[in-house]
Amino acid sequence: MLKDITFGQYYPGDSILHRADARIKIIILIEYMIIALAARSLLAVAVSVAFTVFLVVASKIKPGLLLKSVKPLIFVLIFTAAINLFFTAGEGDPVVHWNFINIYREGIVNALLMAVRLLSLVLGSSVLLSFTTTPLDLTDAIESLLSPLKKLKVPVHEFAMMMSIALKFIPTLIEETNKIISAQKARCADFDSGNIFRRVKALIPVLIPLFVSAVKRAEELADAMECRCYHGGEGRTRLKELKSRPGDYVFLLCATAITAGVILLNSITTQEVFDFCKTLFS
């Protein structure tokens, strides 16, 4: 039932993205999101897609795994594309006209653009962070990036610790959920039939024990941490220090250049590109 969740799953490997500094990867991810969302003109979209393809190839993650991470999103993808397709009003005559349905040229463009954006956002964030970065590195990186906020008395370390604990316990919780589902099934509980309300109600015997044990586990974990003298981030040293190498900075520089390029390319229309090509070849 819950086997298909790939979110937050790390796949060990040895690629540029696996080796890159997690802090740099987070900054690049932010830039990547700007690229994917800002790209509007044909050229800009082309560059953003090319960047996505580069990241996917550089991560050396098996295509099958990537497909699995996209699979749950197919419905959202089709839904947004359809909405854009049918509800974008455009200038000029509609391409398709049938009863009350009008599809304009702009609608088709928007639908495609939306689908590409969503897909590249999911793929990019998967290969940049979740698939190639261990949860531990990720939280360390967030803590390090947010450390300036410590001066404003923001509990950055505690925040990062909470995050890493939450990530760490996802597999445990899934395992526990499966266990509880099995136990209630053994008592003839029925999760697969009836209307939506009955199905939601059928989950109560799973959710309540799950919450109870999660709270209990949290208390036990807190006790265990205190027994080992955990008292927050002050003066705490690390087993694994984050290190950035020259290559990381080159990577960051390239990504920044691409971001700037995409924003610039947005202002160039497709017509101008054609004209430019014409002058080039004539």
Partner: peptide, 19 residues
């Protein structure tokens, strides 16, 4: 459902199934 009512299964540490 019928099979499971005829074969009762009690898991290890079944306390967690109480709700």
């Amino acid at each position: 459902k019928e099979i499971r009512s005829r074969v009762g299964l009690v898991f290890q540490y079944p306390e967690y199934q109480l709700f």
